[in-house]
Design a protein around this nucleic acid. Structure first.
Lengths: 153, 153
DNA sequence: CGTTGACCTTCCCATGGTGGGAAGCCCGAA
DNA sequence: TTCGGGCTTCCCACCATGGGAAGGTCAACG
């Protein structure tokens, strides 16, 4: 069993399958900036370091970062990801808890979609009635300015 | 014609149809905080003041704030609103310019909707395959963790 | 007239994610 | 040994909004 090396040199860390932050970034799609940030807010544990203070990441760390990346891609917030990570690392979890989180977020997304679609519909409608030429008259500006119009149907 | 009053008292300002920031906020739905902020970033001109340094808003100011509020409700950014306000106040504008801005924003919204819907679909799909009971096995976590699955379409 | 409570003023700080950049140290290859 | 790039920490920026402190003012009521 090897001597308990707390802060190895870079070359020996690499031999043991560790990655520096740049490699971790490439392997996970999470920028170095954000990896440090996630450590700062406690979303990932503080990385071990080389003698020269470089951060070191093992496969489990990479895995965790990929989990975070994928969760971000699905629009989860940091807080939600914190909860998801907790469940992920808890063998005694109930899948119902995970499903509840996922459904809640899906509902948030659906709500957001409805809001954006409402805006979009309104805008398309306004744009449709704007002749879009050199004249200054514009129902879009009229609407934004609160002009009373007979909102054609 | 009345004496040129630069900084009147509150009571005489009110007689002349001015509102303080709280009233302006109620009339427009824009918070006092944001009204001050909009002034700070130059989105609205610096308000006139009473002798005691209270901000004063006339009907044109209220109108402008309503325009901003409505634009925000449609999801326009501050920069876009700045441009819209410029067109609104420019009698020589071409409605084509306004329409272009509106369409561009509508397209942004549509893009955002597509992104959110993709997330939502993925999530609903994952949740569908999660039994959601007391057992820890969970395809949602498996997916987030990057477990290779035969993604049953 | 005085008190009181609501309002106004400026100023600083926080949010959520992400990025930019400076100053200084370190690694690896030529 | 030198040099380009990567690493470290630290601060600042974005966008839009809100919270709150400290202090001055207004309006209404007794």
């Amino acid at each position: 069993m090897a001597r308990h090396v707390i802060r190895p040199e870079m070359y020996e860390a690499r031999e043991q399958g560790f990655h520096n932050i740049g490699e971790a970034s490439e392997l996970t799609g999470v920028s170095s900036k954000m990896i440090r940030h996630y450590e700062g807010i406690g979303l990932i544990p503080a990385a071990s370091r080389t003698f020269a203070n470089y951060r070191l990441y093992n496969d489990a760390d990479i895995h965790r970062l990929r989990f975070i990346k994928r969760s971000r891609n699905l629009g989860f917030s940091m807080k939600q990801i914190e909860a998801l990570l907790g469940l992920w690392n808890n063998p005694g979890r109930a899948s119902a808890q995970v499903k509840k989180l996922a459904k809640a977020h899906a509902d948030e997304l659906a709500q957001k979609v409805r809001e954006l679609q409402a805006m979009q519909r309104t805008l398309e409608n306004l744009a449709k009635h704007c002749h879009g030429d050199q004249r200054p008259d514009c129902p879009i500006l009229d609407d934004l300015g609160g002009v009373e119009r007979d909102s054609c149907h």
